[in-house]
């Protein structure tokens, strides 16, 4: 065999094997997935909010994949039970993330349902969590002298309030907050493959309280 042929055949075969294992087989397995009964499809507004999450690169710091209790204390932090493939049924694309510079957000809606909190926190994270290194997102808000009808005014803590000005939430941030409020995967799932008993036991619980 020519060296060239060997190289081409060899590298194609090897690539095909890798595709089979990491792309094709998971693809086939994915066909079996179905949405859990407790999982709601996203509303249009939530989908727009999800797009804002993607555009601003929130994934750079936040994961969406709590681990099992055997592996890590994610549940005890209020991040929820370990997620399963079905939980992501409506996610296009999945936003699993690989960093936890900030906390996991898979159940942020259950942990922190308040719209006011979210808006204020996005405007200035350090007003709510001392020492947070999350960036502020002032460009998602408008500073006005007086709110017009239909404006959503952000209720900031007194220390943050700017005298004579009101902070108005733009549509994008309102969408984003709806998405975050909807992040609630605390419903029970019956199918927890490959998970230890402890997780099955807690899968139905609502996770509350963050540490």
């Amino acid at each position: 065999m020519h060296s060239e042929t060997k190289l081409l055949v060899g590298s194609s075969v090897i690539l095909s094997l890798a595709i089979t294992a990491l792309v094709a087989l998971p693809y086939l397995q994915e066909e079996d997935s179905h949405p859990p009964a407790g999982l709601m499809p996203y509303t249009d507004q939530q989908l727009r909010g999800r797009q804002v999450y993607i555009e601003n690169g929130c994934i750079a710091c936040h994961s969406q994949q709590p681990r099992t209790r055997l592996q890590a204390p994610d549940f005890d932090r209020g991040w929820g039970r370990a997620s399963t493939a079905d939980d992501y049924f409506y996610d296009k694309p999945t936003l699993l993330g690989t960093m936890r510079t900030g906390p996991d957000l898979f159940n942020i809606g259950a942990r922190q349902p308040s719209k006011d909190w979210h808006l204020g926190h996005l405007y200035q994270p350090r007003a709510y969590t001392q020492g947070s290194i999350m960036p502020a997102y002032p460009f998602l808000f408008i500073l006005k002298n007086k709110a017009s009808p239909g404006d959503t005014v952000v209720n900031l803590p007194p220390a943050q309030a700017i005298p004579g000005k009101v902070v108005i939430a733009r549509q994008e941030v309102l969408d984003l907050v709806t998405y975050l409020q909807g992040m609630d995967h605390t419903y029970p799932v019956d199918k927890l493959p490959n998970l230890p008993e402890v997780d099955k036991g807690t899968s139905g619980q609502t996770s509350t309280g963050s540490k």
Partner: peptide
């Protein structure tokens, strides 16, 4: 030779608009 052949193949396959769900995450990585 292998690297030059692999790169376009990798990118095209990863970009195929067929990936979905968790399989998309495995294809991604």
């Amino acid at each position: 030779g292998a690297a030059l052949f692999w790169f376009p193949a990798l990118l095209i396959i990863a970009k195929l608009p067929i990936h979905h769900g968790i399989e998309q995450a495995t294809a991604n990585w």
